[in-house]
Amino acid sequence: MYPRFLLGGDSSIIVQFENEISQKVHKKVMGLTNAIMRAKIKGVIECVPTYNTVFITYNPKKTTHEKIIEKIKSLNFDGKDQKKKARILKIPVCYGQDFGGDLEEISKITGLSREEIIKIHSEKEYLIYMIGFLPGFAYLGGLDERLIVPRLENPKLKIPAGSVAIGGSQTGIYPVDSPGGWRIIGRTPIKVYDQERKNPVLFSAGDYIKFEVIDSDMFYKIQRGELKWELE
């Protein structure tokens, strides 16, 4: 029976839904996450949505897992009460050239031309299922099957922050410089993660990302702050 209430030691609770990655389960996860945040349950510190769970941290000196679970069971979290429409955030990307060194290779593997790859990749709206791995790293769903390519056998030691890449059936943006095994197709000039911002990450789980094609001229203008980019 779902949801299951699992313990993560003495300071966290995991509410687990059906064991699958799907939009249906994602809606339940977001519905419960929002309901818990609204309920402001005593002792609850944080609430993190993942593919099929809600990860809740609490202060065991202020409450017990029993009290929190009891409270959660009393919440209405079918997700239907969500009035807010999902946000669609436009992320500017300069594909290929100096920024997407693996585009040619992907073209060879898939048999698609550079233009076709860019068109297919930038057409879709990708759902952010969860944020994990690195600060601001979004696990996106919805990559077109035609763009599925194997990960690199030898991961790169440094993938620059802002790189947009494809690895297996996933696509994403590297928020910070990091080693990685995905193939890079472009780069965004905007900082999806900035520790100096009050909201250090531009998006949250449940938002959608749409990549917008820009040229290198525009890339540098946005990067230098000469051009303001509207996300929504």
């Binding site: 993560g8 030691g9 966290s12 993942t50 593919y51 099929n52 769970t53 990860f55």
Partner: peptide, 10 residues
């Protein structure tokens, strides 16, 4: 497993 949250001490 399907990736989920990791508590400190897990």
């Amino acid at each position: 497993i399907i990736s989920d949250g990791i508590p400190c001490g897990a």
